[in-house]
Write a protein that binds this DNA or RNA. Structure first.
Lengths: 188, 188
DNA sequence: GAGAAATATTTCACGAGTAAAACACCTGCT
DNA sequence: AGCAGGTGTTTTACTCGTGAAATATTTCTC
């Protein structure tokens, strides 16, 4: 099973990189591990470590335009789900759509309702279920923030050239398909 | 500044992919946004969204071997920092090394000390600083877990072929260098 | 050499997420 | 009809991380 992906830490095959690419922190960490345990295949760290670190850094930076609007990223994800689907969603649909737990969705809905960004109505047939929709204010807020957010994200990513971004998106997509497909049934 | 990376959502240039690559959830989300706001450049989402989603999925799956040892990932990161540097570290060095806040490090040190995985001694010169080191038990634990962890991560990533993994690691490294360098001074 | 500023670490109060229990309601079986 | 079990949502109890204040010590400055 073990893919022996034992290539050198930095010797990339991509023809783009012309010269002196500085070392990122993950490379440094991996280097340390390799001197302590030269026998181990540290390949996975270079992907997983970097994904985690990128996620952390991006989250910190990325959320700047959101914070200005007084929203956290999970809150924005919830509003965004309502906006992009274009129709009402039940709380359980929102948990699926935003990949978070039911309890978290309940709390966020409470807050967002109090702020008048979201409304709920009960189902007429099944009185267990609720239907949540954006208020006008909520829709306007999302529509106002989204372009700012995307513009900001664009500049954050601009350190990587365009073909690089395309490749990165594609590779992450391939990985994600595998993870989403296979990960439910992995109990190693 | 805006990199017009307006390529089709899935039409990749990588010569490897032979056929029917299924759509990942992020692609679906991006598709929804594009029908609602056809004018927006959703390029950044395909990277940032995927990084976040991958990080979330990996974290969930990846930590399985750690949990068996009763460690959370942040705890393991702390122990790992001590192991890979090979010498004692002060709490502040640990905050830098593990990218977490001072308060978090203090709490984790308390727990790990109680469990006998870590020891502390005061500095002789400067009585403000503490020096933390792994106990024998701590070192043995890290050395026992790390290979399992890496093997597990290898199988988790095995859905992506070897050259793909190499490219992905390289691209993430390039992005990370940019983020780590530039992100401190971004106040947009 | 006595404050003033700086540095290392811990404590505190709080917000946010989670799993599991609780609750409310529906549905299918007999 | 009546109830066993399933489903949608909320509540509860708890953990963990955070920023800001508190504490303890050193270093600078005059």
């Amino acid at each position: 099973m073990t893919a022996t992906n034992g290539r050198p830490v930095d010797g990339a095959a991509r023809p783009t990189a012309p010269s002196a690419t500085r070392r990122d922190t993950v490379a440094a960490v991996v280097g340390q591990w390799q001197t302590v345990h030269p026998d181990l295949d540290t390949g996975p760290m270079e992907i997983i470590g970097r994904i985690n670190r990128c996620a952390a850094l991006l989250q910190q930076a990325e959320d700047a335009p959101l914070r200005r609007a007084g929203l956290s990223r999970p809150e924005f994800d919830l509003l965004g789900a309502l906006r992009r689907t274009g129709h009402e969603l039940t709380p359980s649909e929102l948990t699926r759509e935003t990949f978070s737990s039911g309890a978290a969705v309940t709390k966020r809905l409470k807050q967002l309702t109090e702020r008048g960004l979201v409304e709920r109505r009960g189902d007429t047939r099944d009185r267990r279920v609720a239907h949540v929709r954006l208020t006008d204010a909520g829709r306007e807020l999302v529509d106002a923030i989204l372009p700012e957010q995307l513009a900001y994200e664009t500049t954050v990513l601009s350190g990587l050239d365009d073909p690089g971004q395309g490749e990165l998106a594609t590779l992450l997509g391939e990985l994600l398909v595998q993870l989403e497909g296979r990960l439910g049934m992995l109990r190693v």
